[in-house]
C-alpha cells in the first residue's frame, strides 16, 4: 500500500498466499514451455543466417509424433494447474456456515455496507480478522465489481440479483477496495478501504458505532412503516402469506414450481411481485421497486430471516440461502 514502487501486492489472507503460490508455480511452467521457442529462434537465426555456412542437410518438414507430443505434453501440464485453480475457485463459492454476514449495496459511485448489528458505513468496510466474513451484494443501478487486491478477490455486483463473496482476513491493516467493473463517469473514484482489525478492536469499533437498532430491527420498522404488516402481519385481514418461519423453506408457486424462500426470492417478491406468485394467493401485492432501495430490501430480508431464527428449531440459519 505504501512506498514509491511496489512489485508485489499486499497479502491480507492465507488465501492470497495460496493464490500467489499457484501463480508462481504456473509461471515457472509457462517459462519452461516457452523458453525453447525464444532460445531456438535466436539460435537458429544466428546459426542458419542466410549466407552463413552451416549443415543444412536433411531438414525435416514434418514429424507427426513430435507434433503430437508438443500438443499433448503442455496441455497435460496445464491441466494439473487447472485442477488446482478450479479447486481454489470452488472454495470461494462455498462460504462456511458460521460466517459473519455483511450486506453490500453498490450504487453510482459509492459502496454502502450494513453490519448485522445495524452499523452502516460508506466506502469503508471494517471486519475482524480470523473470522470468515460473507458479503451479500446488491446493486442499485449498473453492474459494479467489488475488488480487494490484497485478498486476491473480486465479485461483480449485478443489479437484479444477489451475488456473494466470502473471505477470512488474516492480518490487520488497511487495504485498497475498488470497483473493477466500469460503471460510468466516476468509476475510477468509486473506492475505499477494507479495514481488517483484531477481534477485540472490531468489538470496540462495533460498540463505538452502534446504532439504536440492529439490522433486523430496522427491517421490522420498515415492515410496519411501509405497510407490509397490513397484509403480512398476524392480524391482517387480507389473504397474504404469513412470513414467520418462511425463510429457507420451500414455497409452492402458482405455476407448479417450488422455490426456496432465500434472499433472492424475497427480494424479487418485494420488487417484482408479479414474477413468482405463491400458490393460492391473489395477485394483489404491489411492486416496491420505486419505493424501497436495495439497502431497505436487505433490512427487510434480515427481519424476515430473524422471524425464522426465533421460531422453534429453525432449520435455516446463515449460509443456507445459496
Amino acid at each position: 500500500m505504501n512506498g514509491f514502487l511496489s512489485l508485489w501486492p499486499d497479502r491480507a489472507s492465507a488465501y492470497a498466499a495460496q493464490l500467489d503460490t499457484l501463480l508462481a508455480g504456473f509461471t515457472v511452467v509457462i517459462v519452461l514451455l516457452s523458453a525453447p521457442v525464444f532460445i531456438l529462434i535466436v539460435v537458429f537465426a544466428i546459426k542458419y543466417r542466410r549466407g552463413r555456412p552451416a549443415n543444412r542437410k536433411h531438414p525435416v518438414t514434418r514429424n507427426v509424433w513430435l507434433e503430437i507430443s508438443w500438443s499433448i505434453v503442455p496441455f497435460v501440464l496445464m491441466l494439473c494447474f487447472y485442477v488446482w485453480a478450479t479447486k481454489l475457485f470452488f472454495d470461494l463459492h462455498h462460504p462456511p456456515a458460521d460466517a459473519l454476514e455483511i450486506d453490500v449495496v453498490a450504487k453510482q459511485w459509492m459502496w454502502k455496507f450494513q453490519h448485522p448489528g445495524g452499523q452502516r458505513e460508506i466506502n469503508e468496510l471494517h471486519v475482524p480478522i480470523d473470522q470468515p466474513v460473507r458479503l451479500t451484494m446488491a446493486s442499485q443501478d449498473v453492474i459494479h465489481s467489488l475488488y480487494i487486491p490484497a485478498l486476491r478477490m473480486k465479485q461483480d455486483v449485478v443489479p437484479g440479483r444477489y451475488t456473494d463473496m466470502w473471505f477470512k482476513a488474516g492480518k490487520p491493516g488497511t487495504y485498497l477496495l475498488t470497483c473493477a467493473e466500469f460503471c460510468g463517469t466516476q468509476h475510477a473514484r468509486m473506492g475505499g478501504h477494507l479495514i481488517a482489525m483484531s477481534q477485540a478492536d472490531y468489538a470496540r469499533w462495533l460498540e463505538a458505532s452502534t446504532t439504536d437498532l440492529t439490522l433486523a430491527a430496522q427491517g421490522a420498522e420498515l415492515f410496519r412503516s411501509r405497510g407490509c404488516s397490513g397484509c403480512h402481519g398476524p392480524s391482517a385481514t387480507v389473504h397474504a402469506p404469513n412470513l414467520a418461519g418462511i425463510y429457507g423453506k420451500p414455497v409452492p408457486l402458482e405455476d407448479g414450481q417450488v422455490v426456496t424462500a432465500n434472499d433472492q426470492y424475497i427480494r424479487d417478491s418485494i420488487l417484482l411481485p408479479q414474477q413468482q406468485i405463491a400458490a393460492g394467493y391473489p395477485h394483489i401485492m404491489p411492486s416496491f421497486q420505486n419505493v424501497l432501495g436495495e439497502d431497505d430490501v436487505l433490512k427487510l430480508i434480515a427481519y424476515i430471516k430473524s422471524l425464522s431464527d426465533t421460531g422453534e428449531g429453525s432449520p435455516n440459519r446463515e449460509g443456507a440461502s445459496k
Partner: peptide, 23 residues
Amino acid sequence: LAVAVPSGIKVYNWTATLYKGQI
C-alpha cells in the same frame, strides 16, 4: 485451455521451420 493447444502447435511448428533454414 484447449483452445491454447492449436495456437501452441503453430508456434512450435514455426520454430521448427527455422531449423536448418536459410534465415
